[in-house]
Simulated scan of single mutants.
Amino acid sequence: MARARESLIDLSATPYYHCINRCIRRSFLCGDDVYSGNNFDHRRTWLVDRIKFLSTVFSIDIAAYAIMSNHYHLVLKVNREEALNLTNDEVIERWYQLYHGCILVDRYKSGEELNSAYMYRINEIIDEWRARLYDISWFMRNLNEFIARKANSEDNCTGKFWEGRFKSQALLDEPAILSCMMYVDLNPIRAKMADSLLESEFTSIQERRKQYQSFKKQTCKLKKSNKKPEFTVLQQPKSLLELGCSIDKNTIPFTLIDYLALADFSSRLIVPNKRGRVVKEKPKILEVLNIEIESWLSTIQHFRRHYANFAGSKSSLMQYAHSHNHSWYKGTA
């Protein structure tokens, strides 16, 4: 049975959500279209650029993404606290990057003196915009509509581009966040579109891996030249939510080194005959979260089959279901 979006996205339960949308037409979103013979790889750049732009407007961070041939995956974290701490002028500035606004707010921006009734209405409008700046539905609306209009214009046609509204999964605990991010990052490898993390085009793991390799090369050069490094903190892609630790609520609760090691380990599990050996020891993250390798492999290969609209351990699923007057939610802990 379909559920209302407000029951699927509950920020009091978790700020992390996995969002998916799929193209409806036979002509591909990206890649080679076997029907028309055209190549639409450039549309992947549209999506990545738009996602990153919207993350600077909305108080929503990108934890992971993967742009596939006819669909895309996003793992988003809603930063409600950031949106609530924005000043009225900051809210207006962000909103005007997407929309024209309204006459009353234009008068306020121009410095015109307005009476209390006008200011009361202006504050109402700004509060409405503020709430939309941490609303995943508005984020996805701005992403999907932009891409649909641009693709339709390129194809010289009208009509639906996406099969429907986006699908979402609430990630209720750390194992769910980790396994979902890995599921998204390993999409090209699982689909046999790439053989390694660095070859996984238009994914967040490729960005993180390239940035990490660049940092390592720079550090090695400085060591060889006996120069003191200008910075010791490992730099991460600015457009992505940083991997950090459980203590810092503004980062993903895993270290970058551990996550990259787990991604490499997982990719070798999926493609066992790829170059390099598979490490037999369990990666550190899996040890800490007490996840067995067999269970981990099944989850990162079939994440969407294991869970419906909510993902997490058995206790997390039960707790969240009871808080919404349900007996249980579908899920394999």
Rank of each mutant, 00 (worst) to 15 (best):
C220H: 12
C220D: 04
V233G: 03
N226Q: 11
K228V: 15
L198H: 06
E199H: 06
L222E: 15
F215Q: 08
F202Q: 12
Q235F: 07
R209A: 04
E199A: 15
L222F: 04
S225P: 08
S204M: 14
K217V: 14
Q218G: 06
S204K: 15
K216C: 05
T203H: 05
C220M: 09
F215L: 08
N226G: 07
K227G: 11
L222V: 01
F202D: 12
E207R: 09
R209F: 06
P229C: 01
K210V: 02
K221N: 06
E199P: 01
V233H: 05
C220S: 09
Q235I: 09
L222P: 00
Q213Y: 02
T203G: 06
V233T: 08
V233K: 11
V233D: 00
P229L: 03
K223W: 03
L198G: 15
E201F: 02
E207G: 10
Q213F: 02
Q211T: 12
F202K: 09
R209S: 08
Y212L: 09
L222W: 10
I205D: 04
L234Y: 02
K228E: 15
T232F: 03
T203P: 12
K224M: 11
V233N: 01
Q218R: 02
E230G: 07
Q206K: 05
S200K: 08
T219N: 03
L234P: 00
E207S: 06
E207F: 05
S214A: 04
S225D: 15
F231Q: 12
K216T: 04
E230M: 13
R209I: 13
N226T: 13
N226C: 07
L222N: 11
K224C: 02
T219I: 08
T203M: 13
Q213N: 06
P229S: 01
S214F: 02
R208L: 12
K216M: 14
F231C: 11
